[in-house]
Nucleic acid binder design. Sequence first.
DNA 1: CCCTGATTCGC
DNA 2: GCGAATCAGG
Length: 227
Amino acid sequence: MSWTDERIDQLKAMWEKGLTASQIAEELGGVSRNAVIGKAHRLGLQSRPSPVKANEAPKKPAAPRKPAPAAAPAPEAAPRAAAPAPQPAPVRAAATPAPAPSGAAAATPSQPAAPQPRIISVGPGGFLRQGPGDQQAPIPPAPPRRLVPAKPSPEIADKTSLLDLTERICKWPLGHPGEPDFHFCGEAVNPGFPYCVDHCGRAYQAQLPRGTRRPPPPLPFGGPRVR
DNA sequence: CCCTGATTCGC
DNA sequence: GCGAATCAGG
């Protein structure tokens, strides 16, 4: 897979939306988590609180993993880690940046300056919900669309959604796509299979000899509800 | 173990 | 430019 404009756009949107690199990689498909991170950095989409970047360089800037045996007599006093990055922890959740105009009563409260949260919703399957017009434009006007919480409703808050699926999560669908409570099994998979042990039993059934009568197997989709 | 992002470096 | 390998922290 290559980084087409579309895919780069999706990457940007999802990255800025706060999805993890793994999730983005899964949604895009054909790329690894590392590829996503690498591309994100190349694109300049830096930041994101990293779990491994707590402190800077108190004493040892951490020895470079590759000693770089190649002759490099150049005096590299401080090759990297240049940015002290006193940046405060990024607060990404707030929908309203709250400009906070300093100065005494400089505010004209009547109209709170419309912020630009740049809301990009990612629909099921990870596709970007864009109007036909804004193919890859910044989407200047805030969409009048009603905001939807990350978890659509408490009802399915603890259910396994499409975005929750990983290689080791059972992908057996429960309910029917489109229904509000449609979700996936979510159990730990039977290693090597896309389903948990239970659902592997449903998905994979021994081939019986020809002519043997057999009750129709329950299908994941289409058939009557199976739970 | 699982996960996360950051970084390096051979391609 | 790309991304696997690796690191480092939770």
